[in-house]
Nucleic acid binder design. Structure first.
Lengths: 243, 243
DNA sequence: GAAGTCAGTGAACAACTGTCCTCTCAAATC
DNA sequence: GATTTGAGAGGACAGTTGTTCACTGACTTC
């Protein structure tokens, strides 16, 4: 602590850095990152344009920082949900409720992620994709630990996890649009629909093994290869009933 | 022909209008609409900036035209798929194959829609949402006609249709990213995954009736059918909210 | 308390933007 | 063949953009 770097100096720097992030996030509610101007942001904060460079090389770098801010803090919440041992239906309701609450409390962050997920700035797209993959992996690990996943291939657990995560992200985006364009009523409809969709997926999961869903895994671990066959998850009913 | 309006005149106008659309679409592969410049587009086409106004009021209007171009022509294709009477699994494979082919043949259009679906231009977002809703309605109508949907509520058929459509749109976007960043191999993985996810949804659909999935429809006054299963709970985000 | 670090300033730069206005001149109408 | 129309050209306008450079002055370090 004594010889530790910086003091009130770095605290102030952090403060204006945060101000830049906040200002950008605010401006991004009505435009996308690739059209955001550096001067535009500094003007809101109240600093000279050139001061921007003390914090970020360019707006893309700011965008990546924004991604971490928006998604990074969410992992604990996700883990908390996954740790619960409710029945499937209650778990779904709880999950959707958390999404709903998050959208209500951090609308700008949600909008930013939804918009820039496929937006025009490559670095930001990658940052979001990476963060979402972490979620997928966490969900996949949790799913795999459940008895319901007995006999499942890893690839199938993963595809299920992606289905869940993507649906939740999509729901968050829809919820945002619904709330501001159709009011609370429209938002309620989105929530209702999301719960049912998740429930349907959950039912599909429960009966997955009964149907003979075979099929080779493409490019299994390691690159090209093209071999199939896959002796992996033989526990699942891989019956012939393919038609 | 005699009194008919325009001749080679309007033909030429249509031609440069199309050139504007093509140029914009090309430029939009690496940026988003809200950062696209009017002069930028006219420069590619090779006309004066002011000539732009002869065709569109602004870039938003051009964007809406681009939406129609990208999605409008797709309805016949969708209807063709829906008309087929294959078994579920073959139908899924066929559908995904069509998506795959469409992405390969019209990558720029797909990218545009994926990007601007939640992009920064309201008019374009609405245009895309409207077009996608038409797809949802077509799919819902087709699903409803199937014997498998006997006893289903309209709201549930619709929710299922949205699930299908959204998954396909998402897949198209992922497929595009995968192809250009991970090569054909990564694209193959996306396709494989999409097929399984659709199959899982399809399984969920088949067993939907077995589980007691009740719940009142929000907004609708008279809730139909017996509601059991989970306690409905209309106001999700309201009560529970810990510290 | 002297020396150094570094967040933020402010002027200046060339390049670019959207829009207005007047003009041209080939096609369409009469 | 004279007249009207309208797509497109070209100049000019006031703003805005990102980036450079030398600078100030409060804080940190020795």
């Amino acid at each position: 602590m004594s010889h530790s770097v910086g003091g009130a100096r770095q605290a102030q720097k952090q403060k204006t850095r945060q101000a830049l992030l906040d200002a950008a996030l605010g401006l991004l509610e009505e435009q996308s990152l690739s059209s955001l101007g550096l001067r535009e942001v500094t003007r809101v904060v109240g600093i000279a344009p050139t001061a921007f460079y003390r914090h970020f090389r360019d707006l893309g770098e700011l965008g990546v920082a924004l991604v971490e801010e928006a998604l990074g803090s969410l992992h604990v919440m996700v883990r908390a949900i996954l740790a619960e041992q409710d029945a499937a239906e209650e778990r779904i309701d709880r999950t959707v409720a958390v999404v709903e609450r998050h959208v209500r409390e951090h609308p700008a962050h949600v909008r930013f992620v939804a918009r820039e997920r496929r937006g025009g700035v490559r670095a930001v797209r990658h940052a979001i994709a990476g963060e979402l993959e972490r979620f997928v992996e966490e969900v996949a690990a949790a799913l795999k630990a459940q008895p319901l996943s007995a006999g499942w291939r890893d690839e199938d657990v993963r595809m299920l996890a992606e289905l869940y995560v993507d649906r939740l992200v999509t729901t968050a985006g829809e919820l945002l649009d619904a709330r501001e364009e159709g009011g609370e009523e429209a938002a309620g409809r989105v929530v209702w629909r999301a719960r049912r969709q998740l429930r349907l997926i959950s039912i599909g999961r429960r009966h997955w093994g009964e149907e003979g869903v075979g099929g080779a895994v493409p490019g299994a671990s390691g690159g090209a290869g093209g071999a199939e066959g896959v002796g992996e998850g033989d526990g699942v009913g891989e019956g012939d009933g393919d038609g």
